[in-house]
């Protein structure tokens, strides 16, 4: 089965997407909690970051996202980082003190 066929989720949105085919990405918090995303390879990871922050109820500015130990920039995409299907993004929540 080709990659294109594998990533066509339903019949209603069937079309060839080539290099922009969605991949599955796992976001793992420092305590091991996992959230799974499906994201197109050319979609900015800032979208995923926002969705994750919304999901866990934190301000996105207080969260750092790391891929292969390096911080993910807002402009990065799965394609620009050469991410592959089922890759993992690690999450680090900033320590913030204000008294």
């Amino acid at each position: 089965m080709s990659e294109e066929e594998q990533t066509q989720p339903t019949g209603q949105d069937v079309k060839s997407e080539g290099d922009n085919a969605p991949i599955s990405v796992k976001v793992v918090s420092s305590s091991g909690e996992e959230v799974f995303f499906k994201i197109k390879r050319n979609t900015k990871l800032s979208k995923l970051q926002g969705a994750y922050a919304n999901k866990v109820g934190k301000d996105v500015s207080s969260i750092r996202f790391l891929y292969d130990g390096a911080r993910i920039n807002d402009e990065d995409t799965p394609a620009s980082l050469d991410m592959e299907d089922n890759d993992t993004i690690d999450v680090m929540v900033e320590q913030v003190g204000g008294c």
């Binding site: 922009n20 499906k38 969705a51 620009s80």
Partner: peptide, 30 residues
């Protein structure tokens, strides 16, 4: 990154272990 193509699609939160069968769509995923 130079000349990088990007799109504006929202990622979708999917069910654990069901990555390949999850529906695609906007962030109605919220």
């Amino acid at each position: 990154a130079e000349g990088q193509l990007t799109d504006n699609e929202e990622p979708e939160i999917i069910e654990h272990g069901d990555a390949t069968s999850a529906r695609r769509g906007g962030l109605e995923a919220t």
